[in-house]
Simulated assay, not measured.
Amino acid sequence: MNKTYVLDGYAITVVIDKGLVRITNDEALKSVAADQPLTFAERLVDLIRADYQKVYGKTLAISRLSFIVEIDGHLYVEYCLLKYSMLFWVIFPFGLYNRFRRSCEVIDCGERGRDPNRWLWDRLVPLRGWLGRRLAKAKTTN
């Protein structure tokens, strides 16, 4: 299911499949993240989870906080990759830098079995506040 969510006037494009959500990381997503860095992901996740429940008749098996952390994490990693690109070109040679950049273009959030990184985002949940503050600071220093 293709869905567009409007947050603060920005159209966020999302594809919802069984067990997997793909969020397009475009200028609209970056803009709403810059305007509301501490709350936009919460609102977006709540809208996606509600639609998933309606379409599939069950709750998406990704915890709300893990989902939020994954969105914030992808945005912050992309910010760092762009801001410190020369450094990361050296740290991630042989095309790894470009691979990491491409992986930030669409934020794939999946249930266990569909997303090999689910364990990582689940483990990063305790760092949610820190990550949100880093993202907010990153967006205000652009």
Rank of each mutant, 00 (worst) to 15 (best):
V55F: 02
R22G: 08
E78D: 12
I48E: 15
K83L: 11
S63R: 12
V69A: 04
C104T: 02
Q53N: 11
R114S: 11
D51W: 01
E70F: 00
V77Y: 06
Y56C: 08
Y56D: 03
G110P: 01
T39A: 14
R43H: 11
V55S: 07
P116H: 06
I48N: 11
C109Y: 00
R102E: 15
N25Y: 02
C109A: 13
R99N: 14
I107T: 06
L65Y: 04
A61G: 03
V45C: 03
E105L: 04
D46Q: 14
R49E: 12
A33F: 01
I71C: 14
R64Y: 08
R101W: 10
R102L: 13
D72E: 13
N117S: 12
S85N: 09
T39D: 10
D108V: 09
Q36I: 07
I91D: 06
V21K: 06
N25E: 07
W121A: 08
V21M: 12
D122P: 02
V45Y: 00
R99C: 08
A41T: 05
D51L: 05
A41E: 11
I62G: 05
G110Y: 10
T24D: 08
V21N: 07
K30V: 05
R102Y: 04
F67T: 01
I48Y: 09
D122I: 03
P116E: 07
F100T: 01
G19H: 06
T39K: 07
I23P: 04
L81A: 04
I68Y: 13
A34I: 03
D108Q: 09
V90G: 02
M86E: 15
V106K: 04
W119A: 15
K18S: 09
R101I: 15
L47P: 00
I16N: 03
V32A: 11
I48W: 10
V32Y: 04
T39P: 00
G95F: 05
D35G: 01
F100H: 12
C104S: 08
I91P: 03
G95R: 06
G19R: 10
Y97E: 05
I48M: 10
A33H: 02
L82K: 13
P37C: 12
D51T: 05
E70C: 14
D72I: 07
G57T: 12
L38C: 05
S63A: 13
N117Y: 06
V15T: 12
A41S: 14
T24Y: 03
Y79V: 02
G95C: 08
R118F: 00
Y56A: 03
N98M: 13
D35Q: 13
E78T: 01
V21C: 13
K58A: 13
T59S: 15
K30L: 09
Y97G: 10
V77D: 15
D35C: 09
R102C: 10
R22N: 14
M86G: 13
S66E: 15
I71R: 10
Y56Q: 05
T39F: 06
D26S: 09
D26N: 15
L75T: 02
L29E: 06
D51F: 03
L38G: 04
V106S: 10
